[in-house]
Simulated assay, not measured.
Amino acid sequence: MSGAAGEPRIDHDLVWVIEDSAEDAEAIQRALSRTHPHLTLEFTDRGTGVVERLTETARRPGLVLLDLSMPGLSGSAVLRAIRSRPELDEVAVVVFTSSTEPTEVDATYAAGADSYIYKPVNFDLFRTVLKGAVDYWQRKAKDGGDGPAGQPPS
């Protein structure tokens, strides 16, 4: 966790999930409760107000799981809004979506996503992929931002 007294801090055991599908939100909850029972998950089904909440809260999530296809404010717009705020640079944003459209993947990375992960339909694979993503970002935060498992990038 970071931040001086009174300043917002990053909590790497807090994950915000922005997902409009109740079924996908339930699958994320089930998967992470099995693989990462220590995590605190906060869910919202819309992008509206997310950036404001992130900037106003004293306890910021270490990870945001963001769906792209949402009614109203899209996941892409939320991502751009998060990345436009320098005070949110330490928050990792992982796009977790059902789209595999190459142009969408490229645009998402160009907008500042830390990762782009396709949601598998099979629950066991869904859980495995989600576990790998959360493990990676938690390890990266713990190891000070170096490459996987704290190894410098080659």
Rank of each mutant, 00 (worst) to 15 (best):
E7D: 15
E7S: 13
R9L: 03
R9C: 09
I10N: 02
I10K: 02
I10T: 14
D11G: 14
H12K: 05
D13T: 03
V15H: 14
W16D: 08
W16M: 14
W16Q: 07
W16N: 06
V17D: 03
E19K: 06
D20K: 10
S21T: 03
S21C: 12
S21V: 05
A22L: 10
E23D: 15
A25V: 07
A25M: 06
E26S: 10
E26D: 11
A27M: 15
A27D: 15
I28N: 03
R30H: 07
R30F: 11
L32V: 10
L32P: 06
T35F: 04
T35K: 10
H36I: 11
P37L: 13
P37C: 09
H38F: 04
H38P: 07
H38L: 11
L39M: 03
L39Q: 02
T44D: 09
T44F: 02
G47A: 06
T48R: 13
G49H: 05
V51M: 03
E52C: 01
R53L: 00
L54E: 00
T55K: 08
A58K: 06
A58D: 13
A58Y: 01
P61Y: 08
P61T: 07
P61E: 09
P61N: 09
L63E: 03
L65P: 05
L66A: 01
S69V: 10
G72H: 05
S74P: 07
S74I: 08
S74Y: 12
S74H: 09
S74D: 09
A77F: 00
V78P: 00
V78S: 00
V78Y: 00
L79S: 01
L79M: 01
R80D: 01
I82E: 01
I82N: 00
R83M: 00
S84Y: 00
S84H: 05
R85E: 09
P86V: 07
E87M: 04
L88E: 02
E90L: 12
A92E: 11
A92Q: 11
V93F: 10
V93G: 04
V95A: 02
V95C: 10
F96T: 12
E101I: 05
P102M: 05
T103L: 12
E104T: 14
E104H: 12
E104W: 03
E104V: 15
V105M: 12
V105Y: 04
D106N: 11
D106C: 11
D106V: 15
T108M: 03
T108G: 08
Y109S: 14
A110I: 00
A110Y: 00
A110L: 11
A111G: 00
A111T: 01
G112L: 04
D114I: 07
D114W: 05
Y116D: 11
Y116H: 09
I117L: 15
Y118K: 04
P120L: 05
V121C: 03
N122V: 14
N122T: 10
D124M: 08
D124L: 13
L125K: 02
L125S: 07
T128E: 15
K131I: 02
G132D: 08
